[in-house]
Simulated assay, not measured.
Amino acid sequence: MRRYLFPAILGIVGCAILIWLGLWQLDRMAWKHGMLDDIRQGIQDDPVPLPDQIDPSMKYLPVTVTGTTTGQEIDVLSQMRDQGAGYQVVSRFVTDDGRAILLDRGFIPQEARHLDRKPTRLRVTGNLHWPADVSSSTPAPNLDENIWFSRNVDAMAKHLDTLPVLVVASYVQGDAQGVMPMPVTVEGIPDNHLSYAIQWFMIAATWAVMTLALIWRIRQRSY
């Protein structure tokens, strides 16, 4: 029996760790679903006027802003379901109380990119947002062509001389100039915990089978 002890202990401990990791991922999944429900609720709450003091802790806060675009914009490479590739228009927007902010007005197809979008007065309902679009592989913006590959609030605010505040439009009153709102959703937030849990459980099952196979081989050699 002594020859079976070490592989048995190794198998039991390994399976226990792998199963624990799977259960931990299930706990993380429950936490993530609760967080997503809170975000959805926050997105759908009644909008409020743009606060005087704004910081990233207010992410997803529904707001209503009234003001005028200045004609200055950033075109962010994007795509929209049923529309294909195009751009998200991020405009410099001056509110009625004199604050210059970033307004993500929504999507335009490629052929509409060079249309002249002159200053226009808008009343916008949307959400404050600090998107996590930038990664280590994101190219730097092509400033000569005014094509950006991600929404970086600080960099866009510096480029358009605004406060580092981005409102993503969900509903626009006024001349939208052909720009289709792309409201904030939770679709882009990763939720892979179930697949991770399944992977850990499958590894645990494989570990158990390999342990039994090892014990069986030791047993065969003993005859």
Rank of each mutant, 00 (worst) to 15 (best):
I218P: 02
D161S: 12
M29L: 15
H193W: 13
Y171M: 13
D75W: 07
Q88Y: 06
R105P: 02
V167N: 06
P49Q: 11
N127M: 08
P139T: 10
I147K: 06
F149R: 04
P190G: 08
D144L: 04
D104E: 10
V184S: 09
R28D: 02
T69C: 08
R121W: 00
D38R: 12
R105H: 07
L166Q: 13
A208P: 04
T138M: 05
Q88W: 12
P47D: 11
Y196H: 06
P47V: 13
K118T: 14
L77C: 05
V184T: 15
L102V: 01
Y196L: 11
L26C: 10
G42F: 00
A204R: 06
G11E: 05
W31P: 00
I198A: 08
V13Q: 04
L163E: 15
D27H: 12
E145H: 05
L103E: 10
G174V: 05
H129T: 11
R219N: 11
A169L: 14
G11D: 00
G98E: 11
I101S: 01
R3P: 00
L115G: 05
S170L: 03
S170T: 04
L10F: 12
E73I: 08
D154L: 10
L5M: 04
I218T: 11
R105E: 02
P49T: 04
P109M: 07
R113Q: 10
L115K: 15
L122G: 04
N192W: 13
Y60C: 06
L102D: 05
